[in-house]
Nucleic acid binder design. Structure first.
Lengths: 250, 250
DNA sequence: CGCAGTTTTGATTCATCTCAATTTGTGTGG
DNA sequence: CCACACAAATTGAGATGAATCAAAACTGCG
């Protein structure tokens, strides 16, 4: 069931513009980085619509026809892939200012599911338009390439994590990554709510949910963090970082 | 009438053109897919040079300034990332017709090492030129985006593998992947040489080299494959595929 | 031919999974 | 607003798959 809560219409453009790219709080993290006002304006025009999603709703599903990428304005998503035999694996968590849907470019259909983990809003960026516009706005083209490349680099980091770290270390890496991303958005780097369940985190980290729970308890017992369900408070950021430095060194 | 008239090309170009994109055996897999002859010619001009590497040599290293991506003409590579404390992790194996270096786009320097596992040759594609050319050749732009996207999708597959499969299943997935890629290049899908050591394969799959060796032996004992050091012969392709279907189902 | 690096194989240990029971939290409807 | 049902999280005990440690066999190269 695809949600089509799409704000639309040329006639309504004016008030749409009001919270469009030019003023979006995510603009430093999203596509438009470094554009001139005029270029930004053209990007505004490009972004066809906004779309709101309630918690649990799919932004797109595996196999859906690809025609757009999405910039998250507000909210939190997960992407996962599912195999024939029903196993699934979370490939990432995305937050505001990040781009979703680039997996769909290669085969004209999405290769994973994107699901909102809280009420969210995204900008719909028709991909054909983006490609077209980027032929005349070099800055945009370059930035888009960087965004895609960053996704590749990030995935390499996760592969590394999955391939070489032990359970507790994976959790630490995960928490530090969230911390850093929240910090980049002006939120507290030491205090946040996990939007994902233990099961989803486990899937992402290649662990069972019980192992995630145990690892969190261990970190709490070590005095590094404070856990209250989904609420996390990092009480020793340096301590966490040290855990990754010395990982496996011993 | 595939190749642009050679007699029109500048004198120096002649010998370069001979093994350039227009006639490269990798052209279907590389960037130029679907270009017109004239566009292909312009891509030929774009590819600044070829570069040969002996086994064990680095194509680029972590931290090197990024200015080009590379199309593998012949050979076999691995990419790996290394952490401060010395652990390393193989993030991929690349063969002819595939692109290396896209990890460098995001930060203007490469984020991993690319190392030839056999004597190899690559085409150097200056990235600024590629971006520039792709503004006037939409087919090229689109194809490049597909190539990057495919890399992302592939990485998701590996994350899935690392997160959900057991040792033997990972090996099977790895062998099937190689098989399929060799098949796509017109080589035998059931008979090939591993270019990587057990240690490198293990790093890629998140396993220790002993485990890789054991898993290979097990698969051989099951009559699915034949192993002689680096030489692999798949004797029951369907059997291997079934192993992945039923993975974890039981 | 011999040496170094690679691979195979075995015995043991250890981390994570699995199974299971309990607690805590959340949302719904009376 | 409370009670109930259901989902999520914690914790424990035992099973298991992969890591580790160790030794032997094989390969290729000088």
């Amino acid at each position: 069931m695809k949600v089509a809560n799409v704000s639309q219409a040329p006639a309504v453009k004016l008030h749409v513009l009001k919270d469009a790219c030019a003023q979006c709080s995510a603009r430093e993290l999203c596509l438009p980085l470094g554009l001139t006002d005029e270029e930004l304006q053209r990007l505004d025009d490009l972004v066809g619509s906004r779309q709101k999603l309630k918690r649990g709703e799919h932004l797109y599903r595996y196999g859906d026809h690809f025609s757009a990428i999405y910039a998250i304005k507000v909210g939190f998503f997960k992407t996962d892939v599912i195999t024939e035999d029903g196993r699934d694996h979370v490939t990432g968590f995305q937050m505001n200012g990040e781009i979703l849907g680039m997996d769909g470019i290669s085969g004209d259909s999405y290769t994973c599911n994107a699901i909102a983990l809280e009420d969210s809003e995204v900008c719909v960026i028709p991909f054909a338009d983006l490609e077209h516009l980027s032929t005349t706005v070099p800055t945009l083209q370059r930035h888009f390439h960087r965004v895609m490349s960053r996704e590749i680099v990030r995935d390499h980091g996760i592969m590394m994590l999955l391939g070489t770290l032990r359970a507790e270390e994976r959790l630490v890496a995960f928490l530090l990554n969230l911390s850093q991303r929240y910090a980049a958005r002006g939120y507290s780097p030491t205090e946040f709510h996990l939007r994902a369940t233990r099961d989803e985190i486990g899937s992402y980290l290649g662990l069972k949910l019980e192992t995630v729970s145990r690892a969190l308890s261990q970190l709490q017992d070590s005095g590094l963090i404070l856990v209250q369900q989904k609420y996390i408070r990092i009480t020793a950021l340096d301590g966490l970082k040290k855990m990754l430095q010395h990982a496996q060194a011993c």
